[in-house]
């Protein structure tokens, strides 16, 4: 189809809409509030925010000390990529932080998910793990940071432990809740198909808990990122959090902002990846 033809088609569909003959979407007018695609709006908002940032900094309404311009931040990004800032290049900082966050995330996956499942299916496990998890869960990581330093020193072990603790609780609780999302009929169905208790847990409960386990992983890694800066507050040689903190000390605002953007971008990219995994692993989520 040629360009003019396509143009005609499009304008035709707009015209027919204008005259009330376009296709209708059920639920658009009197359906559940909030349905529909929001991608376009999101892109627009993002561009508008960046433009606003560009405008106020380039018009000189805010001093670069408080808010450097987008160009300055990008320039800094390029600079630090090759050159050391506060002990490491940007890539060095990123690597150090990725190792800590994903190390803690991995450890949490292999401990929190089995423990959460065990808590869901076994009274004794629930009795053992419920008090400690529920007790420490609401405490902000900064609260027990000093204790991890006293116990574990200031090496990566301490940093990974701190992040691990933040990731562990939401993941374990999600896995535990996931166990409950299996219906009694599904369990009885399995038993009356000849399943043993172990088979019920493996083939029904574990699979049925997958959506919530994956949601727990997304929530968990989010907590991991929020705890990263706290973990790198004391005696880190490298790390994005460390980089941001030492830049803030010397009022190098462009590095602070750049660091924040890098953390945000990595976290967001990983969340997109997790959503992709969700669509592949649990395509049936929310459909029944």
């Amino acid at each position: 189809m040629s360009f003019t033809n396509r143009l005609k088609e499009t304008s035709k569909s707009y015209l027919s809409k204008l005259f009330g003959r376009g296709p209708v979407k059920p639920g658009e007018a009197y359906g559940a509030p909030g349905v529909g695609n929001s991608m376009g709006i999101s892109i627009f908002t993002s561009i508008a925010l960046i433009f606003l940032w560009w405008l106020i900094t380039n018009m000189g309404w805010i001093k670069p000390l408080f808010l450097p311009s987008p160009e300055a931040v990008i320039a800094k990004f390029v600079d630090i990529w090759g050159e050391e800032f506060s002990g490491a290049t940007l890539w060095g900082h990123i690597k150090a932080s990725l190792f800590r966050v994903f190390g803690a995330f991995f450890l949490a996956c292999i401990t929190a998910i089995p423990i959460g499942i065990a808590m869901g299916v076994n009274r004794i496990f629930r009795g053992i793990f419920d008090p400690p998890i529920e007790f420490y869960r609401p405490i902000p990581p900064l609260g027990y940071l000093p204790l991890t330093i006293i116990w574990l020193g200031i090496e990566d072990t301490q940093k990974i432990t701190l992040i691990f603790l933040a990731v562990f609780a939401p993941m374990a609780l999600s896995a535990r809740a996931g166990v409950r999302s299996v219906t009694i009929e599904q369990i009885q169905m399995a038993y009356s198909s000849g399943a043993t208790r172990a088979q019920v847990i493996w083939h029904v409960i574990l699979k049925g808990a997958m959506p919530e386990i994956l949601t727990g992983m997304r929530i968990g890694i989010g907590f991991g990122w929020t705890t990263l800066v706290a973990a790198e507050m004391v005696a880190a040689e490298a790390g994005i959090g460390h980089m941001v903190l030492s830049a803030a000390e010397f009022l190098v605002t462009d590095v602070v902002i750049m660091g924040i953007i890098v953390i945000g971008a990595i976290a967001y990219t990983f969340d997109l990846f997790m959503r992709f995994v969700e669509r592949k692993v649990v395509p049936w989520k929310g459909k029944m």
């Binding site: 009929e185 599904q186 009885q188 169905m189 083939h203 699979k207 049925g208 997958m210 049936w284």
Partner: peptide
């Protein structure tokens, strides 16, 4: 056993 609400496994 056949249940009132199907007890199928969605995955």
């Amino acid at each position: 056993v056949v249940f009132q609400q199907h007890a199928l496994l969605p995955w």
